[in-house]
Design a protein around this nucleic acid. Structure first.
Length: 798
DNA sequence: GATTATATGGTTTTT
DNA sequence: CCATATAATC
């Protein structure tokens, strides 16, 4: 090999004969950068802050900089890069690998705050009194613990709702306030007293104790305990300071106090800290993030190099102008001048519709049209919205049009009941103290350990300061008798068997044994309902995912605790989100997601839905300047996702909690100059008015049949038009359609169903309170109709 | 003790 | 509208 140093592989994709010297080599990838980008990449030692505007090539800069560090002789093992999502981490890894062409990138420590800290905490757990196989509680587990604590403390669960309490505790942890400090902090106590919830501090304390007893940490603990580790154990601090010589932080504007302090500690020895962020895109203050961190960064270190990336390579002039104009209404911001060399592009289209369903239909129509006229693919489109609940109307119309789509976020695969139940078994095997897992499975599948027994168990556990599991193991001693005792013993024997297999079998084989021995798989298999089938498939999918985990070659960056153990698997999946499964990411589907989930992504064509008061901005956020400005930043993020075309839509009214609610157009719309807008679809008295009225009348009728259309969605699957080939031929109800009294129905009658059309009743059955009619429809064949829900019109008596 | 009917209340946003 | 918590019934 003719070339100079160990850094050859970086340039392996360049023709060899071009390679003459290191300087020339470096200039090759540096040449692809603009001036400020180059400055950011080539700065090696000392603190640096990169203010990276939307679409300014931030990821490119970070990845190139890491490659450059390695080219300059920095050991990959000494580089730590922290991101907010697994997806961002994965993308970075991939891009660095591409630049390096070799395997060196494997040794980098790249991951989310939570997953990197979880890994470290697992290695250091004993210092903190935790088992190294500690469980990570997700929000559901945490809320469940809180619920039991509130009950045990005899507090009113109407006042102490798990969501509210957890939020409060979460904010405290993110601000590095422990239970004792919480209880003695006058202001916090005052706040809680004011909101009629004076006991939150005590709940917090009990919650922390309970989690510890259960050998569990919640999401926030992964930060909080990491901080405790670094501050409480100087040798641990020194160890990681030495290890991470170079640290990079992505999305710095979204860091909270805990993250900020941890970074500060880790970076204190070498001060090779590089933070990247954009204050205009700070959208996580509800999670404790504070823009202050960006400002404070310059105060904390001397000689901070500051680089601003202001050239946008993503969007058209028009899109950028609109974004700039909107964000300009915010008072709190670092002034930037984003510019682009891109084309002016088309105007932004503003679309008004009557209802949320119309909004969905218009967007689907528009996508169809653009596909035909401009040769777009499905994957060129994204539909973004403020709340997950908004996805439905888009989903329905895309389905009806036969357009393939994929929803990100919402309930993820691992949050489904059947999956959580199965996983609970795996959790209890690894960590028998995990009360939440035990609670889920102690009587699933039903084995005769009912409420009475469980209540007694919990009482005993609290009295004796032991875990429920320990008590179960000595059930006879603790006074359980007869059939109950037998059931308990059988359960204990089974779980102990699993535990003994833990060291002998790999995670997949063990999971298969669990599925068999518990009877879960068989039970789901025997459930032939649609939902049961979906659940069965989901469990199979889970087993597949475990297998995949086992078979994936081990990454060195998994470091000292990296292994294929069950507990590593469990740790990995709680920290995974729906958005992270990027196996489908390249699939040709329209992408639907919240704006939060869309951060960092870009799409050729973007639709932003629901630009209405009370929704966007959310009515939770209109009472303070800070909150409103965050909503505006959110809008800014949404706008800047678009590369060439942007559509903004809003509806006059939408269904909320099953009721039609009227809304004003969002105040944000007034902040956009008309010269950038195409409002031909937004007029209030346009010719389309007629069409709207008709379609919303149609909507109103369809609403009556809500029960028919919600087939359970299978996770991780792309919806390629389940309704494209409709099983039901659409029927337009007659003018005079009026539901008849179902008590008058007789066999042999001809009836009209609003959806299925005309048919003849062949059979009437079912209990009086739940009568069921079998009807042969002319268009749609035989159906069983629940008369309590369906509306039927008697056409003629036989 | 388990299965099923009824009531209630919930929508920001996420690791 | 939907999901989950409680009450009612077998």
């Amino acid at each position: 090999m003719p070339v100079v140093c160990s850094c050859t592989n970086i340039f392996s994709h360049y023709p060899k004969q071009m390679i003459h010297s290191v300087n020339l080599l470096m200039s090759m990838y540096l040449n692809e950068l603009n001036e400020p980008q180059k400055q950011a990449v080539t700065h090696i030692d000392g603190p640096m802050m990169i203010i990276a505007g939307a679409g300014s090539g931030k990821t490119k800069v970070i990845t190139t900089r890491i490659a450059h560090l390695m080219a300059s002789g920095v050991d990959a093992f000494q580089i730590l890069a922290l991101t907010f999502t697994n997806k961002a981490a994965a993308e970075m890894k991939e891009r660095i690998e591409k630049i390096l062409g070799g395997t060196d990138a494997r040794n980098l420590y790249i991951g989310t705050f939570h997953s990197v800290f979880a890994r470290i905490l697992r290695a250091e757990a004993p210092r903190l009194g935790y088992p190294s196989s500690f469980t990570i509680y997700d929000a559901d587990d945490a809320k469940s613990v809180l619920k039991t604590i509130v009950k045990e403390m005899n507090l009113d669960d109407k006042h102490y709702k798990p969501n509210i309490v957890l939020n409060r505790i979460s904010l405290a942890k993110n601000a590095l306030v422990g239970p004792d400090e919480y209880l003695t902090d006058a202001i916090l106590q005052q706040d809680d007293a004011k909101s009629q919830r004076p006991e939150i501090g005590n709940i917090y304390k009990a919650y922390a104790q309970r989690c510890f007893k259960n050998g569990a940490m919640d999401f926030d603990d992964l930060l909080f305990k990491m901080y405790e580790l670094l501050t409480g154990f100087p040798d641990a601090l020194a160890k990681y300071q030495r290890k991470f010589r170079y640290i990079m932080i992505d999305e710095y504007q979204d860091t909270n106090t805990a993250q900020y302090e941890i970074i500060k500690l880790l970076g204190a020895m070498h001060e090779n800290l590089c933070v990247v962020g954009d204050d205009a895109q700070s959208i996580y203050s509800f999670r404790g993030a504070t823009i202050e961190n960006i400002l404070q960064f310059q105060r904390d270190y001397e000689d901070v190099k500051v680089v601003k990336l202001e050239q946008n390579y993503r969007s058209t002039q028009t899109i950028l102008n609109v974004a700039n104009q909107v964000i300009d209404n915010n008072r709190d911001q670092i002034k930037k001048k984003l510019f682009t060399d891109n084309h002016e592009g088309e105007k932004i289209r503003l679309i008004r519709s009557m209802t949320d369903n119309d909004e969905g239909r218009v967007v689907a129509d528009m996508i169809q049209e653009l596909k035909l006229r401009n040769h777009h693919f499905n994957k060129d489109f994204a539909i973004l919205y403020r709340t997950n609940a908004q996805s439905r109307s888009f989903e329905e119309s895309l389905r009806r049009m036969g357009i393939a789509y994929r929803i990100y976020g919402g309930m993820s695969f691992y949050q489904r009941k059947e999956i959580k139940d199965f996983i609970a078994y795996l959790r209890i095997i690894v960590n028998p103290a995990d009360e939440e897992a035990l609670k889920r499975i102690i009587n699933y599948p039903v084995r005769g350990i009912g409420k009475t027994t469980i209540d007694k168990l919990v009482l005993l556990a609290n009295e004796t300061e032991r875990s429920s599991w320990e008590i179960l193991c000595n059930a006879a001693y603790h006074g359980f008798r007869g059939n109950t005792l037998q059931c308990i013993d059988e359960f204990v024997t089974m779980v102990k068997m699993f535990q003994s297999e833990l060291t002998k079998k790999n995670a997949y084989d063990l999971a298969v044994i669990v599925g068999k021995s518990t009877g879960i798989v068989k039970e789901l298999f025997n459930d032939k309902t649609t939902e049961g089938l979906a659940r069965y498939e989901n469990v199979q999918e889970l087993l597949n995912s475990i297998k995949e985990f086992i078979e994936t070659p081990m990454n060195e960056e998994d470091g000292e605790v990296g292994d294929k153990s069950l507990s590593t698997y469990l740790q990995q999946i709680v920290l995974l989100t729906d958005t992270d499964n990027d196996d489908q990411h390249e699939a040709d589907t329209v992408k639907l997601m919240t704006i939060h989930a869309a951060k960092g992504l870009e799409f050729p064509v973007v639709f932003i839905g629901g630009l209405e008061e009370t929704l966007f901005p959310s009515n939770m956020s209109i009472n303070s300047r800070e909150d409103l400005e965050e909503e505006r930043r959110l809008f800014y993020v949404a706008i800047t996702r678009a590369k060439t075309r942007l559509f903004i839509t809003f509806a006059n009214s939408r269904y909320r909690f099953g009721q039609l609610q009227q809304n004003e157009p969002s105040r944000f719309l007034e902040e956009i100059d008309d010269v950038y807008l195409d409002k031909s679809f937004a007029g209030s008295t346009s010719r389309n008015n007629n069409g709207w009225m008709q379609s919303s009348a149609h909507d109103r009728m369809r609403r009556g049949f809500g029960s028919m259309s919600n087939a359970p969605a299978t996770p991780k699957k792309t919806y390629t038009t389940p309704l494209a080939k409709p099983q039901t031929k659409e029927h337009v109800p007659s003018e005079n359609f009026e539901a008849s009294n179902t008590a008058d129905l007789k066999e042999g009658q001809t009836v009209e169903h609003m959806k299925f059309g005309f048919g003849t009743i062949t059979r009437l059955e079912g209990a009086a309170h739940n009568p069921i009619a079998t009807i042969i429809f002319q268009q749609n064949g035989e159906k069983k109709i629940m008369l309590n829900y369906a509306k039927l019109r008697i056409v003629e008596n036989q």
